[in-house]
């Protein structure tokens, strides 16, 4: 097996007496997509939150390219593209400005062209001047996903990215993630959509089967 891009070892998370994650191991190599599936409450999102540093595991460690994954380090933030469920928006910035901001914050020199291309791809060009409050929930989800593709990335961590997307949107997402894999990026995908998991993922980790 090639050197792992993401290495998760022994992640354990307890809420009171209940152990949600019990010494979970996970490896993702470049160009590979790993699906994390399981019933509600099985700890899928908790695992992702522990991986990206949004939650503190009770035990275990996460390595990105062999180094401790500490999201406080700028170089880790450059490589790690995350879409979780807790997305929020600036109420006074338009769709295109949100993406422009992310692209520029990542130092993308061709930010405008890149943002335009991604806007077109995710189908938000028509609403690019609108404020987030005027978007539908599906359009907001597309905006959150678009933020991943206007920036550099080596590992994508996605928590149910298909949520609130229409059928065409899910199909586009599948194609896009396959292309991301082909470009040598790693993907950790939590999803309740078996078709999306089957299309994108090379391996599947099932949680909550104890």
């Amino acid at each position: 097996m090639a050197d792992a891009l993401l290495t998760v070892r022994g992640i354990t998370r307890r809420f009171g007496e209940r152990t949600v994650l019990d010494a979970v191991d996970l490896d993702v190599v470049a160009g590979e997509a790993v699906g994390v599936v399981g019933p509600n409450g099985s700890g899928k999102s908790t695992l992702l939150r522990c991986i990206v540093g949004a939650d503190q595991p009770d035990a275990g460690e996460t390595l990105l390219s062999g180094q401790q994954l500490d999201e406080r380090r700028a170089e880790v933030r450059r490589d790690l593209a995350v879409v979780m469920d807790d997305i929020d928006f600036f109420p006074d910035l338009s769709v295109v400005e949100h993406l422009d901001l992310v692209a520029r914050a990542h130092g993308q020199r061709d930010a405008e062209d890149l943002v335009d291309a991604v806007l077109d791809e995710v189908g938000l060009m028509q609403v690019s001047g609108q404020l987030p409050s005027t978007l539908s929930s599906g359009q907001r989800r597309r905006l959150a996903l678009a933020s991943v593709f206007v920036r550099p990335r080596t590992l994508l961590v996605l928590d149910e990215p298909e949520q609130r997307l229409d059928v065409e949107g899910v199909a586009w997402l599948g194609e896009k993630l396959v292309a991301e894999k082909a470009a040598g990026r790693g993907i950790v995908l939590v999803s309740h959509d078996p078709d999306l998991v089957a299309k994108v993922c090379d391996r599947v980790v099932r949680l909550g089967d104890a």
Partner: peptide, 16 residues
């Protein structure tokens, strides 16, 4: 910092 700034800016490599 506000939630929007956390999502859109703190995840970038800009000096936190």
């Amino acid at each position: 910092s506000p939630p929007a700034a956390n999502v859109w800016l703190l995840g970038t490599p800009v000096d936190r």
